[in-house]
């Protein structure tokens, strides 16, 4: 089987010259769920923004064998569903329905297909009753789910999530982890929440100062106290 995400020697620096990512290489197999952990400023979010071509570094990224480059970006963005840390950045329509419908409408699908996709996506996150609500007034946990639905409606093969559990109370957090476990997509989750990794992702990648510091089974990495301490995770 071929990897669904293949990152080869990816490097990136900010316009001011500061190095954000250096020589990242990573292979992800279909269906894998991976936690991407690291201290603030380690480059997690920057790496995620490369997966759908928002940022362009040097090196190569293949998504399902297709190179992330200008001419493929439309298709890549349908394959890679990026869920932002703050759902308010992602939800900007008067109703939940319109927010979830954004992707399919942009893809140029017909009204009936759009409706189907929105209903499927809302059902997948258990929010079918919320279609007519205004997203602004929902709780953080509900907003997170809607944000996930807004990318699920494009039926992506990969879900990329940035700090999905931040700002959630314990119950909302537990329910979100359960939801992520149910979803069949390949997942790359940037997080500070080591318990999430323990519960959800069999594999963990540790990022420090823009480089991969460790990559292996979550249990082994979480057991290595000195590794966690060295990279600001403990």
């Amino acid at each position: 089987m071929n990897p669904i995400i293949e990152i080869d020697h990816l490097s990136f620096h900010y316009p001011d010259g500061k190095v954000a990512l250096s020589e990242i290489s990573l292979k992800v197999m279909p269906g894998e769920k991976i936690a991407l952990v690291g201290a603030n400023g380690a480059g997690k979010s920057t790496l995620l923004l490369h997966l759908n071509g928002i940022f362009e570094g040097s090196g190569q990224i293949l998504i399902g064998g297709m190179e992330v480059e200008k001419k493929n970006l439309g298709l890549i963005r349908g394959q890679v569903g990026l869920v932002f840390q703050n759902p308010d950045d992602q939800l900007f329509s008067p109703t939940v329905y319109e927010d979830v419908a954004y992707g399919p409408i942009y893809q140029g699908l017909g009204e009936k297909v759009v409706r189907e996709k929105v209903e499927q996506a809302l059902a997948a996150v258990h929010m079918s009753d919320y279609a007519g609500r205004n997203p602004y007034h929902l709780s953080s946990g509900e907003k997170k789910r809607i944000a996930i639905a807004t990318v699920l409606s494009m039926q992506p093969r990969i879900l990329v999530l940035d700090e999905p559990t931040s700002g959630l109370d314990p119950r909302a957090r537990r329910e979100l982890i359960e939801l992520l476990r149910e979803l069949p997509q390949t997942m790359l989750i940037a997080t500070h929440d080591l318990a999430l990794a323990e519960n959800l992702t069999p594999r963990t990648v540790v990022l420090d100062q823009g480089a991969i510091a460790a990559d292996g089974p979550t249990a082994e990495i979480l057991a290595d106290e000195s590794l966690l301490l060295a990279h600001g995770l403990s």
Binding site: F92, S93, P94, T95, N134, Y136, H137
Partner: peptide, 8 residues
């Protein structure tokens, strides 16, 4: 306005 009307 549509957004604000729905939200506040």
């Amino acid at each position: 306005l549509a957004f604000l009307f729905a939200a506040r």
